[in-house]
Computed example of a mutant assay.
Amino acid sequence: MSGFTRHRKSGAAVTTFTAFEADLLRSLAGQLIELLRNESATEEIASDDLEDLLDFSGPTREPEDPVLARLFPTAYPEDEDAAAEFRRYTEADLRNGKAAGAATVIDTLEDAGLPAEPQDGLFIDVELDPATALTWLRSFTDMRLAIATRLGIEEGDEEFWYSLPDDDPRAQVHDIYDWVGYLQETLVRAVGG
């Protein structure tokens, strides 16, 4: 398992993944896209002609899925109407941006040579320009928030996670959470120079 480093000449962030690691990242990004696209949080709201033209038909209530609620927290918890209006005008674009970022992770891996069915012994060399690296960093954050929410990870509970037996599925998912965090940390260093 290697993290990202900065390429001396190009300044790009580079790493090499095994086919298994690259496929795991592709799977996490795909699951994130699916989650972002599947839950409908919109309700019919009376609108005027200008709003119809600009399509402000975004979600107005907090998502039911706890991961989506964590990714899109309520902006004004003390004012339900203001929160609904804010969400209506912003959440659709935020969802689209997060989904596009996850799609960039997938596209980058596939452009680097990740086949539809990973092969043993295959290595994938990834090179990220600064803009793509920032997109990956945001996607890593989204992936880690999703995993942390599903597992119930809280600050300061490392001892619990490290005490789980290796064959516990939660321990295995926590290892993925840690790995994505490691990738994120090394990518930050590679981008920062």
Rank of each mutant, 00 (worst) to 15 (best):
R61Y: 15
N96H: 15
D107W: 12
K9I: 05
E127L: 03
T149C: 08
G3W: 01
T74A: 13
A131K: 06
D175A: 14
D157P: 03
T90A: 00
D55Y: 01
E21H: 03
A12C: 11
F20A: 14
E80Y: 09
G152A: 05
A148T: 01
R138V: 10
E110W: 01
E127V: 03
G30Y: 02
Q31Y: 02
T108H: 03
Y162R: 12
E85A: 12
T18Y: 02
V180C: 10
W161Y: 12
A171M: 06
S139R: 00
V14T: 12
P73Q: 14
D65E: 04
I45H: 13
D125M: 00
R37A: 13
S27I: 11
D157L: 08
D157V: 01
L164Q: 12
L25A: 07
W179Y: 14
W136N: 10
D93T: 10
R189Q: 10
L134N: 11
P73V: 15
D55H: 04
N96W: 14
D52C: 09
E80I: 13
T5E: 13
Q184H: 13
R37I: 07
A99G: 09
D166K: 12
P66L: 10
E127P: 02
L164W: 11
L145A: 12
A103M: 04
Q31H: 09
T186S: 15
G156R: 09
V67G: 00
D107Y: 08
R88G: 02
L25R: 07
D79F: 03
G3R: 04
D81F: 08
A29S: 10
